[in-house]
């Protein structure tokens, strides 16, 4: 299964063409690509850019776990790509690329969405937004703990 999964973190611009090249096979009639980008407005505040912070080792381990879970659910033939960027990004730059390919579109759509949604809730990644008024703020997120 591992050769059908690619997960990584990087401080370099993300490569969507590489994601689609990886997520292809002669028997795969569907490929789904998701790109998460920095947007210019969040909760009414004008955003200049976002600094992404992540725990690299744990992040890659969580990505791998998510991808293996996804493959177990939507078929071991599925091919999966999940790469997240870190460092300072400007508005419009891609922060995450996820891709999935499979025999039919239903599995590719669902698997790609599952990867992205679970990544947002479980991967150790944080973002600090930088605003046009000079302020910066760490964005609130999803707690990983379940203690009282």
């Amino acid at each position: 299964m591992r050769d059908r999964i690619h997960v990584a973190t990087t401080d370099q611009p993300l490569d969507t063409a590489a994601a689609l090249e990886f997520c292809s096979a002669p028997g795969h009639g569907a490929a789904d690509l998701f790109i998460g980008r920095v947007r210019d407005i969040n909760q009414g505040k004008s955003v200049l850019g976002v600094s992404y912070d992540l725990h690299e080792t744990l992040c890659r381990n969580v990505f791998r776990e998510l991808a293996e879970e996804t493959a177990a659910r939507w078929g071991s033939e599925i091919r999966l790509w999940l790469v997240h960027r870190h460092g300072r990004l400007d508005v419009g730059e891609a922060s995450v690329v996820a891709a999935a390919s499979s025999r039919h579109r239903d599995e590719a759509f669902k698997a790609c969405r599952h990867l992205v949604e679970e990544m947002k809730h479980r991967a150790p990644i944080w973002k600090q937004e930088h605003y046009t008024d000079g302020d910066s703020e760490w964005v609130q997120g999803h707690a990983l703990c379940s203690h009282g």
Binding site: Y52, L58, H84, K120, A123, W138, V139
Partner: peptide, 10 residues
Amino acid sequence: LALLPPVCGG
């Protein structure tokens, strides 16, 4: 060890 605040990738 690491201390991880609530996460928000993407």
